[in-house]
Simulated scan of single mutants.
Amino acid sequence: MDWKSKRLLDKKTPFPLSGPIPDKDYSFTIEYDSENLEYPENRNLRNPGEMAEYNRANNKDKGIERIRERFTTATGGTLKPGDKITTAQLKGWGYTNPNSITRLVASKTIARVQKGIYAVNSV
């Protein structure tokens, strides 16, 4: 018996993850603290609508962050929370689509004070 085979049969050495494994009966014991287990949510993303729901749940914060970063870039970073802006200013910064202004309000980047006037919440 060579030294490698002898080492594999020694009970104090760890079980080999690669290479030859000697023919023996092995038993394994997995010990874990059953009170602190976290089970990930099991989803079948192939079901209709499941992938869209997963994306909405996991990408919402990323989308809001992208909206705020774009707003800060478009305004030059000069606005502070509480500053008042108008629709004309937003259009000058590139927010020509009414939906883009709605997204700014929905992400709580700006708040509608009255028609055509908004207050900056966070930048």
Rank of each mutant, 00 (worst) to 15 (best):
T75Y: 01
E65V: 06
G92R: 02
G19S: 11
E35L: 11
E35M: 10
F71V: 01
K62R: 14
N59C: 07
G76P: 01
W93L: 02
R43V: 11
T29L: 12
L45K: 09
N47W: 06
E53G: 15
N42G: 04
D83K: 10
R46A: 08
S27W: 08
R66L: 14
T86Y: 02
E65F: 06
A57N: 12
D33F: 07
N36R: 13
P20Q: 11
D23W: 04
E50F: 03
G63L: 07
D33M: 07
P20I: 05
A52Q: 14
E35W: 05
D83I: 04
S34R: 09
E50T: 11
N99Q: 15
T87Q: 02
K80S: 14
R43M: 12
N59S: 09
T78N: 09
N44T: 10
R56S: 11
P20L: 06
L45D: 12
K80Q: 15
D23V: 13
P81D: 05
P20T: 08
K84V: 11
N42E: 15
I21K: 07
P48A: 10
P98E: 03
P22K: 05
P98W: 02
P81I: 03
N55P: 00
P22T: 07
R70T: 02
K62E: 11
E41H: 07
N99D: 15
G82R: 05
I30G: 03
E65R: 12
N42V: 12
G49Y: 07
D83L: 08
T96D: 09
N36G: 03
Y95P: 00
T86K: 03
R68S: 02
E41N: 09
E65S: 10
R56N: 14
T78G: 02
P81R: 04
R46D: 13
P40Y: 04
Y32T: 12
E38P: 00
N36M: 07
A88R: 13
K62A: 12
Y39T: 13
G82L: 08
A52R: 14
T73Y: 05
E53N: 14
N58K: 13
Y95R: 00
G76A: 05
